[in-house]
Design a protein around this nucleic acid. Sequence first.
DNA 1: GCTATTATAATATGCTTGTATTATAATACG
DNA 2: CGTATTATAATACAAGCATATTATAATAGC
Lengths: 206, 206
Amino acid sequence: MPKVVDEEKRRQRIAEAVWDIAAEQGLDRATVRAVAARCGLSVGSVQHSFRSQGELKRFAMELVVQRVTERLSVTPDSAVGPLDEQQAVAALLLETLPLDDEREKEARIWAAFSASALVDKRLAPYGRQMSALLERFCLACLEALGAAVAPSAKRELRLEALHLHALLDGLTLDLLADPSPSRRQQAAQVVRSYVECIGSKEATCS
Amino acid sequence: MPKVVDEEKRRQRIAEAVWDIAAEQGLDRATVRAVAARCGLSVGSVQHSFRSQGELKRFAMELVVQRVTERLSVTPDSAVGPLDEQQAVAALLLETLPLDDEREKEARIWAAFSASALVDKRLAPYGRQMSALLERFCLACLEALGAAVAPSAKRELRLEALHLHALLDGLTLDLLADPSPSRRQQAAQVVRSYVECIGSKEATCS
DNA sequence: GCTATTATAATATGCTTGTATTATAATACG
DNA sequence: CGTATTATAATACAAGCATATTATAATAGC
């Protein structure tokens, strides 16, 4: 038998090279050659791990969804009071924005794959999955803000989650186009104001 | 002298072929050959109008910005009452969303170029231009809703414009991923609720 | 240690790309 | 009418691409 390597780790390492290139130059520049060079492998090795380039891209995006899922599984706990709760939720939401360079890179990766998913049937399901994921996360945040809500307000809450999700996506896009510190501060302020607004509204309604 | 053609119209016709392909398959599939075939020209003719492919893409995105600028120059007039004003502003905002197939195509074009602008320095200025344009439009809409505002609230209004802009962008993205009628309805409802919320808030503040 | 097995690498192949070059067709002007 | 001029077209060409094929190196089991 031959040299044994952790095939799964290898695949993830290659996929992360795809991420890097996608973030810096766009997903279509993530050619097999470029990816192989990026992670110090030969073209043949990449081919050994992935049957085709399409499979590589698909896996790379699947891994994005997986990693984001893991991160977003942290649900806001309702242990503290309403004021602290607002701050906790705001902090949670702010973590999804590209407010520092590391998050910006992640957002660039997300943006590159999302854009491709709009025109690539193979990637579209993962785009929808990511979208649904973020929306559930937003819903959880809103529920944490408004505590228990009446069943009649369920629909309203769903719409509010759509609003919040769109807001986060839009702010992310904006910050990718202009990652200046002032812009980042403004975006953060928008989120904080939003949370404040929702918090007070829910309070009066309940 | 040779055959005389309206060179500007020709360039726009070619650029619109780029739009079509970008909307359907992504901007990177808008190869010189594909574009030429799309508008029934030869490769040589396209080359005659555009020195290089980079120039073609740049021009095509510049034209997008130009067309959007023309459309968004329609400012909400403050002739009617506050209730009608709300409806007018909401209608104006809803026109920016991909709620029908025609608008969806436009949004796909915008998305394709915006995504490329994130990794292409040559296109980045147009992305920022488009963003600034939309933000001014949002600001105008908010001013139309809140009538005259105190100078101290200027900053707050700017933040609200950023919020609205991000909301529209995010909803657009969401609708591109899922253009189902129900989703479109939900997105429209979110915008209407937003306008309502802002309208009532401004009223109490003034 | 030998060998079967497989990761890795190097190279080959056919296709697509952007662009340059060349040739052809069509028209405004003398 | 003839010709200078230029749009259009066709083709050529080098580079880059995904992928297939082939060769090499390395290791687990006997």
